[in-house]
Simulated scan of single mutants.
Amino acid sequence: MDTPNPAATDPRRRTKAPETRAVALMDAAERLFIAKGIAATSIDDIAAGAQVAKGTFYLYFPSKEAMLGALQQRFVDIFCERLQNAMDRHRPDNHHARLKAWVETGLETYLDNVALHDVVFHEYRPENRRMRNDNAVITQLVGLLQRGDAAGVWEVEDAMLTAVILFNALHGVADDAVAMGPAGDPVADRRRRARALTRFFEQALHPDVVDPDV
């Protein structure tokens, strides 16, 4: 009589490639953090959700906090990739179109992933404020602003500070959308917000249209 293969009968014991196991653990953690919250989710829960043994978790992440850091980084990486792809649909010298694409895609990506964003960044504390300035999304925006400035399309005295201001403007508009809910049609509301943000960005980058008394 043949001996049953445990891996064939117990899905939790199936062999996964190392990169697959890491992704499965992160995916399971995302789902559980959103559904239960970080504090209520144990490492046992995450391992079970990924269908791996608990010990496997520690091969990739020394703690739940390390897992949270990895999820934060993955969120930022995907966010930046979507922004870059949107900008790259326009010519490198079409700075206005690339800025508009950055704004529209940034707002859309945030609103599409607000539950995940809120749960993986909820551990934000004042001592971590420098993370805002080291944020890859802000760094990406700095590059866009500097290229437009070099081309004479707009004028930016301090690209980093300007990027921080504009990034937080986008963040604030997105948070307001979540708090207030859409005004009528959700798609139309997003477009309205994106238009207002793009107009704000353009005006901020053209000092000639700013009231000198302000």
Rank of each mutant, 00 (worst) to 15 (best):
I34T: 10
I34P: 02
A35D: 15
K36A: 12
K36C: 09
K36P: 01
G37E: 08
I38Y: 11
A39F: 10
A40H: 13
A40V: 05
A40Y: 03
T41L: 06
T41R: 11
I43W: 00
I43G: 00
D45W: 00
I46M: 03
G49A: 00
A50T: 00
A50N: 00
Q51C: 02
Q51N: 06
A53P: 00
K54V: 12
F57M: 04
L59A: 11
Y60K: 02
F61D: 01
F61H: 07
P62C: 07
S63R: 05
K64A: 09
K64P: 08
K64S: 08
K64R: 15
E65D: 15
A66T: 07
L68F: 03
L68P: 04
G69K: 08
L71H: 00
Q72H: 05
Q72P: 02
Q73P: 01
Q73I: 03
R74S: 08
D77N: 06
D77L: 03
D77T: 07
D77S: 06
D77V: 05
C80Y: 01
E81Q: 12
L83K: 02
L83Q: 04
L83A: 04
A86Y: 04
A86C: 09
M87G: 02
R89A: 12
H90I: 00
R91Q: 15
R91W: 10
P92R: 13
H95M: 09
A97L: 09
R98M: 07
L99M: 15
K100C: 06
K100A: 15
A101N: 00
A101K: 00
V103A: 14
V103W: 10
E104P: 01
E104K: 12
T105S: 11
T105H: 02
L107W: 04
E108I: 04
E108Q: 14
T109E: 13
T109G: 09
T109L: 08
Y110A: 13
Y110N: 06
D112S: 13
N113Y: 04
A115P: 01
A115V: 02
D118Q: 10
V120L: 02
H122P: 01
E123D: 15
E123A: 14
E123I: 07
Y124F: 15
Y124T: 14
R125Y: 12
P126Y: 12
R129A: 15
R129W: 14
M131V: 10
M131K: 13
M131C: 09
M131L: 14
N133W: 07
N133R: 13
N135I: 02
A136I: 10
V137G: 10
V137C: 12
V137S: 15
T139H: 14
V142Q: 09
V142P: 07
G143N: 12
G143E: 08
L144H: 07
L145D: 04
Q146Y: 03
G148V: 05
G148C: 08
G148E: 06
D149C: 08
A151L: 06
G152H: 11
E155T: 14
E155W: 06
V156G: 11
V156D: 09
V156H: 11
L161E: 13
T162A: 15
A163T: 06
A163H: 06
I165F: 12
I165M: 14
I165P: 02
I165L: 14
F167Y: 13
F167V: 01
N168E: 15
N168L: 11
A169V: 06
A169T: 06
A169N: 09
L170C: 08
G172S: 14
G172K: 08
G172I: 10
A174R: 07
A174F: 05
D175T: 11
D176Q: 11
A177S: 10
A177D: 09
